[in-house]
Amino acid sequence: MILTLTPNPSVDHTLEVDGLVRGEVLRVQATRAHPGGKGVNVARALSGANVPTRAVLPVGGGGGAELTALLGDLPRTTVPIEGETRANVTVAEADGTTTKLNAPGPVLSPAETRTLLDTVEDELTKGPDWLVACGSLPGGTPTDFYVRVARLASHYGVPLALDASGPPLVEAARAGSVTLLKPNHEELEELTARTLSTVGDVVAAAREVLSWGNEQALVTLGGHGAILVDDTCSWWARGPLVRARSTVGAGDCALAGFLSEDGPPDKGLARAVSWGAAAVSLPGTTVPTPDHVAAHETTVVAEPDPHQRIDTL
């Protein structure tokens, strides 16, 4: 069973337009609303593939009620808060370009933050196979929140996968004890404070991050695939080119694919890229089903050419 934690979930509204033109009145071709937040997306993708999962998330106000309704029968433990669960807007253009407008979300009180951590700890006592902690932090939450989560996971012997950005990612990565870090290209550059232009740059940066006490790094590269690095080897994988409808949630689905089954690292990487490619081909934050994923076969290369530029992969 895979437990997910989403400190700042959302209701994601997607508007599909032919093209986004500032200052103009545009005709929307389709609208969609999905439950959102990175950990929520991971849980939805896993549940759709019949992988046992449970989502932990705070909810509040009318937005929280809408989110709860959209989650349907997804197994979950919710933490009531006084603030309003945020709503995000994505504008998806016909050529696959997506523009995201992410609201900041509620402000959690210290007591609410403590209750959220206590809820995670209670779920950890039940022995999940993974804890997946994902996404931005709501206001009022200390930037070392994910460091605290990592300590809880370590205490209960549960592997931790972390997908975050900014100071919360930096603090957790430098504190170590993360089993699987899932930065994208830009986030890995932020972590190591340098430009990463080649495969060798990415692998070296990932190894630096692992030297801080972490075990694996799954670096997603958008349309250029993904690179997986541990202390012994590195792998690069890419799926077939697909017509992109929305990139929102693709990295979350890639993480879900990686964690969906036990097995060797290269097989997990292949699943990650397949699930991510399937997600990109779907509208809004729709998560792929196994039927969608089956159409996206991948190629995996062990110890890829370090001189290969990322933008030419």
Rank of each mutant, 00 (worst) to 15 (best):
V120E: 08
L124Q: 09
T4C: 11
V59N: 00
A270W: 02
A254H: 05
S246D: 02
A30R: 15
E112W: 10
R243P: 03
V59D: 03
S281Q: 04
R22F: 07
V287E: 09
D266T: 06
T31R: 15
Q29A: 15
A302C: 06
E215W: 00
G223F: 05
G37E: 14
L124R: 13
E297W: 01
G263T: 13
S47L: 08
N184W: 07
R243T: 15
T6I: 12
E66K: 07
P168Y: 00
L131F: 11
L181C: 06
A294R: 15
H185K: 08
D95V: 07
H224D: 11
T6P: 12
V147E: 00
G127R: 15
G36K: 01
E215R: 09
V199C: 14
A69Q: 04
R148D: 01
E112V: 08
L181K: 07
S234D: 13
A103P: 04
A69Y: 00
G19L: 09
T68V: 13
V178K: 10
L162E: 07
D163E: 14
T90F: 05
D163F: 09
G257T: 06
L196I: 09
A278G: 14
A150P: 02
T14G: 06
T220L: 09
S281W: 04
A150D: 00
S274N: 06
V107C: 04
L101Y: 09
P167D: 04
D201F: 10
A295T: 14
A103E: 14
G61N: 02
P168M: 06
L5N: 11
V248R: 07
D12V: 03
P306K: 05
Q29D: 15
A65V: 12
P110D: 05
E187D: 03
D266K: 10
S165N: 00
G127K: 14
A43T: 11
L101S: 06
E297M: 03
A173I: 04
P52F: 11
L228F: 13
A65R: 15
L108H: 04
